[in-house]
Design a protein around this nucleic acid. Structure first.
Length: 107
DNA sequence: GAATTGACCAGCT
DNA sequence: AAGCTGGCCAATT
């Protein structure tokens, strides 16, 4: 429990990630690679996933709008099925576990 | 301070 | 086409 209270000093990198993800419009999704590139670190897709996994602001940051570069759902700590349901409810079309390219948000 | 992990990506076999 | 390996970034142990 003090683990959470311990500290939450978001680094610049994380802040950029959260900001980009937060600006993704409803009904659209972005890939980790896209987000990583948008913040100036095209090879930091992993760190992006980590930032969301820690999820400093679960309400401010709709992490479910971030998918893998292969357009597959990717991962989701609470449950991938939940993620798929949320995206579909937001208007994202998912076929065979893959998000439609037209649903990708362009930065 | 080194080694391991994690919601990944691209390239090679 | 599917599976494996290496590489990259930040955080945790």
């Amino acid at each position: 429990m003090d683990q959470r209270l311990r500290e939450m000093p978001l680094t610049e990198f994380e802040k950029k990630v959260l900001r980009k993800v937060a600006e993704i419009p409803r009904g659209k999704v972005a890939t980790y690679g896209q987000v990583a590139r948008a913040i100036g670190k095209p090879r930091a897709s992993r760190a992006v996933g980590n930032a969301l996994a820690k999820n400093p602001y679960p309400i401010t940051i709709p992490c479910h709008r971030v998918v893998k570069g292969d357009l597959s759902l990717g991962g989701y700590t609470p449950g991938v099925e939940k993620k798929r349901a949320l995206l579909e409810e937001e208007g994202v079309k998912i076929v065979d576990g893959r998000v439609k390219e037209e649903c990708l948000h362009r930065f």
